[in-house]
Design a protein around this nucleic acid. Sequence first.
DNA 1: CTGAAAGCGCTTACAG
DNA 2: CTGAAAGCGCTTACAG
Lengths: 353, 353
Amino acid sequence: MKRKLTLKQIAKDLNVSISTVSKSIRNSTEIGEETRLKVQAYAKLYHYTPNNIALSLKNRKTKTIGIIIPEIVHHFFSTVINGIEHVANDNGYNVIICLSDESFDKEVLNMEMLAKGSIDGFIMSLSKETQFKGDFNHITEVMNQGMPVVMFDRVTDEILCDKVIIDDKAAAYEAVQSMIDKGRKKIALVTTMDYISVGKLRTDGYTKALLDNSIPFDENLILKIDDIVNSELTISTFLKDKAIDAVFAVNELFAVTIIKTATKLGLNVPNDIAVIAFTDGIISKYSTPARSRPTSSPLGSLRNHIRPNPTIRSLMAAKILINRLESEEEEEGEENYRTEVIATHLIERESTN
Amino acid sequence: MKRKLTLKQIAKDLNVSISTVSKSIRNSTEIGEETRLKVQAYAKLYHYTPNNIALSLKNRKTKTIGIIIPEIVHHFFSTVINGIEHVANDNGYNVIICLSDESFDKEVLNMEMLAKGSIDGFIMSLSKETQFKGDFNHITEVMNQGMPVVMFDRVTDEILCDKVIIDDKAAAYEAVQSMIDKGRKKIALVTTMDYISVGKLRTDGYTKALLDNSIPFDENLILKIDDIVNSELTISTFLKDKAIDAVFAVNELFAVTIIKTATKLGLNVPNDIAVIAFTDGIISKYSTPARSRPTSSPLGSLRNHIRPNPTIRSLMAAKILINRLESEEEEEGEENYRTEVIATHLIERESTN
DNA sequence: CTGAAAGCGCTTACAG
DNA sequence: CTGAAAGCGCTTACAG
């Protein structure tokens, strides 16, 4: 079996010492020009590339960042990865991606694997199951070993570390407020289970908007969905039984399902029932490939929406991590973690209702 | 800054040698029970984990597999990753994912990065741009350094290596034949640009089916699409101008767009125009979240389709790679590359037309 | 100008 | 039963 070319091999082939080869390749002026050029030519000819593993060992840093995200069949995370890669590459870092697949066990395994030396730090978004269990020992563990962690989007208060989030509560508040302003009376909420931090915060925004407007909070107007794929019937019943004239959905898939269900029930969206949601653009992309007539698709009815831009956040997360990595060299003071909150606002299209 | 615990540190803390610590932790009987247990307790208490980087250097293998795929906003690749991870983990391997984002440059950079020692072998699917350029030097390069590569789905004839593909041509042939059998006269083809190997093969199957049935090949019935997102108008014109009664689409997104466009033109699918396509299930998942009434969505009209199962292929690819990795230890004979062709057939739903 | 030595963290054959 | 030494591939301070 062929092997990667090493300094040792070059040294042997050229009858010089390993140090000489190393210095020549790094173009050190310490080495005489003749030798230097000879070695360089040889290295180039045989496509020598230094072994990163050896470099990592020597330098005690890998110059790579690990990303752990729940899933990737999702436009959102794809954008996130691109953003992080961009900043990383600009700063001489590489990026490794691992998927937790929304599973706690996979998240733990992936973190453990990467923490065994493969990377210098993490950027992560918690899996659903992890948020549900509330078990964050794997993260504490990694941080105890001196690895910085930046949490992204799906975060937890139980871990002290850098975080990048959007102001979910405020954005939700704004959305619900806008519905109230337009005269909607019975505003329902379709959200996730409470353990999803993001869903929880958006729910809080909804609740607060109602309170601030002295609208009585009605628990029956809240629908918590665990598995959207099998929930059309639930939603149908929900919409039918209450005289709801507006729905705030915490994500795009929920919104699509709601709009479709409402339409099937003979309701006109947005006239009979308005729908506002957080979106990420992926579903509308698939639903209306050509975009020529937005109103022909479910999302067309979703004129007003909140679309958090993942790019800004991913750039920010990468910068924070790299910053910490570079400054950490000597320092001891760790406690100054920051939580970056990116403002996010409701997008209202012209012909709103 | 805190650091990861090392054998050296433990040795110092416990006043024994590094060798003793190492052997104790690996539970070698060479070490006296008392010492062994003491070391083990200490290691456990402080959560010692061996440094993978050091192990990789020492063993000259990393026990990790690199996956390079074009994108991940795609159910298909998500399934592929899961399949590979499954086999990998079962065999003590870890998996690292890199995205080429359909870009040649990113593909090259990612491969170079991983080839510098981070992994033992590749499983990859070529980016569109790479297929378009036809430049595969980065792959040759990596293979020359003794790294096995298994190509997956989007492959090229220009590189000799292990490959796992489906029989695109035969499956396409079967689909087109079925339309012919049902009496369709003017069968159009909507496909990708020729440089996409998969699209090319499916096109070949289409052509062959026509030939074998003595149906004159009409170039005007072939539409090659580069960017589906902005192609509704093109498709609309295409469908309108010819008296087409059937379309074979090489992928699901094409099919959705075709069906939508046809419907807008007032055509009944499948009565006026039948559509058969290769699918992967993701779009139908988004388009009809609840699945209760399949015919209400574009994909509902796509009763007959070819859905290559990515799981089998990914398991196969991982097995082939690991097999090669494990057997390669000493061997010299490299030339016995295999191309695994997974049979794939048309799925016909009951109420076909 | 060139090279031997130490060290990154680990394992293992070999002494004692 | 324990430990010193060599080596994985590299860099760099230090001799010569």
